[in-house]
């Protein structure tokens, strides 16, 4: 890890640390570092492309007939947006592990001794998720096309689909980043994060329609952030309405970034010795 840690912004060449330009330079440097780190990790490549693809193909093979008999639509049309979102969630575990490594290896302590805002490290990691999200969207849309997924609403909506999918990368990653500031080891980070993402995925309309859920679960499913994201992507791909899901997706995104980002910032503001 130390070998691929990449350059830290040099204090002499960078703009003054506190200015907007200075902060932007710090974020850019950390984003570049995060990008190089995950693009060199075969695990991230597997988590971002192969795992969602495997999930798409196996879910299609197993459940197409049953779900299509239940609701009548093309299952791939529902699944591709879902797996974009789930791929971003489960793929962000790598970013969370990376941050945990930075906190435990002393890299973060080194950052604290520099005229750099510690939070820019996290923001950099989040920005780098844009690239991972783009890869995930491209692969899923491409393969989904072979199995019946279509953009029915023209190139502009298709572009919107890609833009929204990519923009969600730096949003959902904050859940993992904030948990990483609270975890003491990979064992206390990975499983809880996996459990949270599984719950989010299953309590949504991502895999099956709302009517398939028992009555008590339906209100939860309806307000779920994943439902909002999937409905928005689904709408852009040519299905349903856009305005409602867009508002809910925006509200959830602000909530996730501010809530989990704030939590992470609060944890980082404490000296290293005080962190769990």
């Amino acid at each position: 890890m130390t070998a691929s840690a990449g350059p830290v912004p040099s204090t002499s060449a960078a703009p003054a640390a506190g200015t907007a330009a200075g902060l932007a330079a710090q974020v850019a440097a950390f984003a570049g570092r995060a990008f190089r780190r995950f693009s060199r990790s075969s695990e991230t490549v597997v988590n971002t492309t192969i795992f969602p693809l495997l999930l798409l193909l196996t879910l299609l093979a197993a459940f197409s007939e049953a779900v299509e008999a239940f609701e009548g639509g093309e299952y791939a049309q529902r699944l591709v947006p879902t797996l974009v979102v789930s791929g971003l969630m489960f793929g962000s575990v790598g970013a969370a592990y990376g941050l945990l490594g930075d906190l435990q290896s002393g890299f973060m302590d080194r950052i604290r001794s520099l005229p750099v805002a510690p939070l820019t490290l996290l923001i950099g990691i989040a920005v780098a998720e844009l690239a991972r999200a783009l890869a995930a969207v491209a692969v899923l849309v491409g393969v989904g096309h072979l199995f019946g997924f279509r953009f029915l609403d023209g190139p502009l909506s298709a572009l919107g689909f890609v833009a929204v999918g990519v923009a969600l990368g730096p949003v959902v990653v904050w859940i993992g980043l904030s948990l990483a500031t609270m975890a003491s080891s990979l064992e206390t980070l990975g499983p809880p994060l996996g459990a949270v993402f599984l719950l989010l995925l299953f309590f949504s309309q991502g895999m099956v329609p709302l009517e398939a859920y028992p009555g008590w679960a339906q209100p939860l499913v309806r307000v779920s952030p994943i439902t909002a994201y999937v409905e928005l992507l689904d709408g852009l791909a040519g299905g349903g309405p856009l305005a409602g899901p867009a508002v809910r997706a925006l509200v959830w995104s602000v909530f996730i970034v501010v809530g989990f980002g704030g939590l992470a910032a609060y944890r980082l503001s404490k000296p290293a010795g005080d962190r769990g």
Binding site: F70, V208, A212
Partner: peptide
């Protein structure tokens, strides 16, 4: 233990009605 329980509950939640219809 915990993850299998989670899968048990979640698959029941999501797929039970659809599969029972078949």
């Amino acid at each position: 233990v915990l993850f299998p329980i989670l899968f048990f509950v979640l698959f029941n939640l999501v797929m039970r009605r659809i599969m029972e219809a078949r």
